[in-house]
Amino acid sequence: MASAHSDHGHGDHPKFLAHHFDTPEQQFDAAKFGMWVFIVTEILMFGGLFVAYLIYKGQEPSVFIEAHRRLDWKLGSANTIVLLFSSLTAALAVRSSQLGKKNETTMWLMITIACAFVFMGIKYVEYSHKFHDGLLPGRYFTAHLPEHAHNGQVLPQRANMYFALYFMMTGLHGLHVLIGASALGYVLYRNLRGDFSPEYFTPVEIGALYWHLVDLVWIYLFPLVYLVG
């Protein structure tokens, strides 16, 4: 154990090591632990929406089933694959930065960020269809009116709840996709600057953890909202 002051200006305290940590390992563990605690908070925040969704679905199952047919499960599945793939590339970015392969890390990070944009693009297509069909949340819901009939059928007005929850859940998730992509963008910038090495790749690891969280939320969201109704 180094005494409190002997570590200033000494060679054994690398530049990336903050002054209140003794070893890189301690700093790395603290960062990762902090991220896991943060993931817990995110799970509980999204969890609240899932609880609301499951409760209202349990109350009006037939309405929810009818309403979910208006989502495009093909686009949802495509987005699932995109996110799963981006999770793979994020994990590979961590791997290559652990091995000190800077260029590979750059490539994997760029693919991950590109996937985020593909995901948001597909989301945009989905959303604009919903807007067009009057499948809007709450009081703006108009899909029960004859002019929005779909294959000659209209939805019951009570389906507004399904779309309220759909937009809240996918909207909040989309926001997290954007935040995650920005975070990975910052990691990418630092990677290009040459901050990382096999001894120090904490931000890559943390950014990737966040990105996997975004994936985790979607893993539950997709079957519950798109498939089961």
Binding site: P24, E25, R95, Q98, E205, F222
Partner: peptide
């Protein structure tokens, strides 16, 4: 005091991704 993190094999990670895709197909089919 150095960072010791596990480095996963490349192909193993790809295999996990494959398993995830299979499960996605299963959930759609179900």
């Amino acid at each position: 005091g150095k960072v010791h993190a596990h480095v996963s094999p490349f192909l193993f990670m790809v295999a996990i991704f494959g398993a995830l895709v299979v499960l996605t197909v299963v959930t759609v089919a179900a």
